[in-house]
Amino acid sequence: MIWLSSRSRIAVMVLPALVLFTAFFAYPVLYGTGYSLTDAQGFSEPRLIGLDNYATLGDDPFFWLSLKNTVIILVVSVAFLVPASFALALLMQQRIRAAGALRALLFGPAIVAPILVGLVWVFILDPRVGLLNRLLVPLGIPEIQWIGGDSLTPYSIALVFSWASIGFAMTIFYAGLQQLPGDVMEASSLDGATRWQQLLHVTVPMMRETVGIVSILLVTNVFKIFELVYMLTGGGPVHRSETLVSYMYFVTFTSQRYGSGMAIAVVVLVLGALTSLAYLVLARRGRSA
């Protein structure tokens, strides 16, 4: 390979991606960060104001609320989705008629546009016209405000996010399970391990890396949830159900406070990066241990 690794050849291979990525990704991140230090709003010229936007965010109850909601969605999604999709992958390994078709169906929601997912779930979660209350109310259960109420909306968004992601996560786990060396599995069962023991002491440890991958993908996706909120509640009532990103969109584009909006974007960026980094470190440590 060293023969072909001349400086110019490397440049030819690396530069297109490097130039495009720098121009349309890295530079905009810096540009947005710069904007967060200005008072840019409405239609007027921006002025540098230092960290004022960040200080204002600290006093903004809706910002903290949207952060709280994001964390709720994050915790519920990861705590539920990772084990559930793993269990589902185990289930899909069983000899079931048409297992391939079942896996395909489970993956289906992952390819539906999030904006459409939101629209679809309005007709399930809406307190008045939604399927869920249509089924529950006749059973004598009082009308539940799945979306639009005080408290349940973030959980409902986590549910919808889980619906859209579970097949995707399951598929990665399933693929990981397929990679497990058959002889190790067989050896452990020949050693007389029960299925539970085998699962806990052989399968799970060997799947650690896959768990890391699935978690990173899910966490970064949670930080990108926007269309669901946009379609389900529009962030309401009175910003009670905003996520960081949807609130950022509101501040930036609906309220036209570009500086403040970019400040939220930077917070989202830092949080997303930190979480991913934490997982990477954990995964690496796990691998070397």
């Binding site: 905009p28 991140v29 947005g32 990103v245 970019m262 974007a265 989202v268 960026l269 997303g272 990066a273």
Partner: peptide, 9 residues
Amino acid sequence: AVPVYVLLF
């Protein structure tokens, strides 16, 4: 790890 929203504007 970068949410695309920071890129929009």
